[in-house]
Nucleic acid binder design. Sequence first.
DNA 1: TTGTACGCGTTATCAA
DNA 2: TTGATAACGCGTACAA
Lengths: 342, 342
Amino acid sequence: MHSASSRTDATLLEVARDAGVSKTSVSRYFGGERERLSADLQARIAGAAQRLGYRPNQMARSLKGGRSRLIGMLVADIRNPFSVAVMHGLEQACRARGFSLMVCNTDNDPAQEREHLALLAGYRVEGLVINPTGQPSHELRQLADQGLPLVLLDRTLGDLEADVVGLDNAHAIDTALDHLLAQGYGEVLYLSEPPSRASSRQARLARVEQRLGEGAGLSGEACCLEPGDAPALNAAIAAFLAAPGAAPKALLCANGNVTLAATRALQALDVGLGETGLMGIDELDWCELVAPGITTLAQPTEDIGRAAVDRLLRRLDAPGERAPPRRSDYGGRLIARGSTRR
Amino acid sequence: MHSASSRTDATLLEVARDAGVSKTSVSRYFGGERERLSADLQARIAGAAQRLGYRPNQMARSLKGGRSRLIGMLVADIRNPFSVAVMHGLEQACRARGFSLMVCNTDNDPAQEREHLALLAGYRVEGLVINPTGQPSHELRQLADQGLPLVLLDRTLGDLEADVVGLDNAHAIDTALDHLLAQGYGEVLYLSEPPSRASSRQARLARVEQRLGEGAGLSGEACCLEPGDAPALNAAIAAFLAAPGAAPKALLCANGNVTLAATRALQALDVGLGETGLMGIDELDWCELVAPGITTLAQPTEDIGRAAVDRLLRRLDAPGERAPPRRSDYGGRLIARGSTRR
DNA sequence: TTGTACGCGTTATCAA
DNA sequence: TTGATAACGCGTACAA
């Protein structure tokens, strides 16, 4: 029963010989043209393939046809649940349309990004979905210039010619601030990681500053801190809460990581949630568990994943068209909980 | 600056022509044999490759050489942080040793598992790391019989010839129960998903029942529920807490999912953590946030990932040896928090 | 409906 | 140190 130890896979030719037919027929059988074969041949081929444990060699297949049927994904931080959720949507959409997804994690490291890019290019992925780290690397620009379909998640990247799929940041900020206002909060501290080169952070920050500048019942400030700098975060929050002001105060967090850090900080400062408002962009499964529940704005991650694949395949179907980059924005969903109930 | 829209990658032959050398020399240059080429040739090839934006075609490379340099991973639930953490370790280890990781998510669906298996086999992965769903599929058994190196994460799978890497379940249970005992709890409710075909769940459950049967200061029971059946869970916990008994009571959760569900249930029942003990296997980033912090037993996920790759490559380096399956167990790390402090 | 012959981009073998 | 040539496994004309 156990086969030889050589680990040589059966080839199309072997199947053909075993079945007593030609290579072409076997190729047709596995290439989705079974109808064109006689019932007899089909049975013989199926039998032989079964017997030999034959599997078409994708490498050879894509070498010949030029179609690898592979989509690459570059994700900045695989441990970020948001990235995983998008990846899940992507993968589903890819499979549904006959593609496979090759995922590479860069750990926010430009060197790893370059390395992985070379890898994906080597496997001749037909499209690339990227959750970019910072500046577009030379490798990436080169691929883009070659005309490889590119979709950026959540943020634009320099002047790169690529579609962008992500949250409608201005609308998301409006939704959040309107919610806080409606709940009776008047003073807001917006917490974000440094927006430096991440366009989505810039967009959110800009909208926050615009809204807070307008007045209209809300005032406050924005504060950008390096992720992981807990002391600075604690200090910033403490200062905000200690500052004089009659209106109830609330914290708005730019993403899931910040929400996590801010929740830690509030616990360290022994501040009650709700009394002081807390709200974050990105829904996480623990947000309902931290009493009395943390209000979030959930991103439609599956939609985003699907949209990314759509963009990619649209470009693949119209090769050489060079349509202008397009951006698709999706709205978030407000999940109100106790942390914004006074 | 912009290249043609055709998306045809430069080939080795084109580089050779542009550089005025032979294919062989270019192949040597990119195949890691640069030392054997004269400085002049090296420079000419480098220039031409640069100019043309050449990237070796992995497909063709692996077609010829038979080495795809690909490791496949099949994960049952990509949204499980434990899986992601292991995947992270795997990926690092793969890269460090010149391999790439192709990850497929099965969403616990046997049909998807089969499909993805066919895919990975098609790309001629040289090894497979699997977080199995249930019964070994026919496809999987076939690959194993062919001698494809296989590593199972966390659970054995029927009589499949494969290495297994995971937690030392008996030791983990002992650590957990000893901790609960030391903290003064005497009555334990062990919560798990149905162990049906998952060997690690069986192992944990068996050890729990053995220990609870021994007495030695601990008594209690085990309760297996379908994931997501919140009403049943609430009822089970309520019954446990209502039952007469002098000793302080504690819940022990078999994995992260169960911990999440149990935490929800305890909140619904308005039970204070600590007063009633709560402890879970698997560390999650929110466990410290749910007041007063949830005690966990963290799995050494990165170690597990690395070990899996080690096993795989060891078999790859000794082809045809058919060493007997081997199992590697790793110890967990206790993270004591307020939920087990009375 | 079935088979023959060639090429995809690369590496390996052998000769110079 | 270099180069010519034959595979690798498959798809796809084209011919029968």
